[in-house]
Amino acid sequence: MMALLLPALVGGVLTGGVYALVALGLTLIYGVLHIVNFAHGSLLMVAMFGAWLLATRLGLDPLAAVPLMAGAMFAIGWGLYRFVIGPVGRGDDRGVLLATLGVAVVLDNAALIAFTGDSRSIETPYALQMVQAGPLLIPLAKLVAFAGAMLIALLLWAFMALTDTGRAIRAVAREPEGAALVGIRPARIFALAYGIGIACLGAAGCLLLPSFYVSPQVGGMFVLVAFTVVVLGGMGSFPGAVVGALLVGITENLGNLYLGESLGPICVPLLFIAVLLVRPTGLFGAVR
């Protein structure tokens, strides 16, 4: 059994890394805007299709496309907030929430028209390559995705902790009026934070593409996991998103290993319920 346990653990950590990237964007948007971004899954799908188009039409490797897609998704997210979600929501939380839901419906159906409901994938030269690490054989694509996700998480943390703009984002999250009084324009910060959250999806889409199928429904699968991770880790918490994602990835893999493919998936919801029973605000959530 030990021979299977270690690979399952490592596999869980690797998958969790990419979950973390999806969850980081979600938790950032929640932490600053105090809304649950229902468009998150759909925007991840857009990012995956973007990376897929770049790979199939232009022959650009998804890993090389990370900066490009992160930039493009930042622009899309910023524009969406600035011209759709912000104006439609008018600062009312319910309005903002419904606006993100509307964006999701539009994107999902647009993708169905453009790409049909088929699943698609790309072939990369490294898709089947394995890295030998002691007794372990690790798929190269997953290893790179994990490393990329952790690097981006680190960069995001540094940006939030060390730059004026990052501090302004954190300040607006808790005290928008105080922020206005030092000359920060909260509306700009909201659009910026939304853009950064969506840029994370741009990177995630590229990192996921070598090992996952893409279809117009793909977002739902990841975003459900991301919501679980964000609530589990503590809403709005960066360390919570990373630790929660790794935990979910490991639990998922161990569940499938020991309970099988049909019973295994109950492990993550069980973990979720167990954590919230003990800590209702999540692992790293502020205790009120």
Partner: peptide
């Protein structure tokens, strides 16, 4: 023209130093 508001409106989730640094944001 700088306004120090009633109720302080400091940033509780930031450190004292970060609060001060943001004071010179503009």
């Amino acid at each position: 023209l700088i306004h120090v508001p009633e109720g302080r409106r400091i940033f509780p989730n930031l450190t004292v130093r970060e609060n001060l640094l943001l004071g010179s944001y503009a």
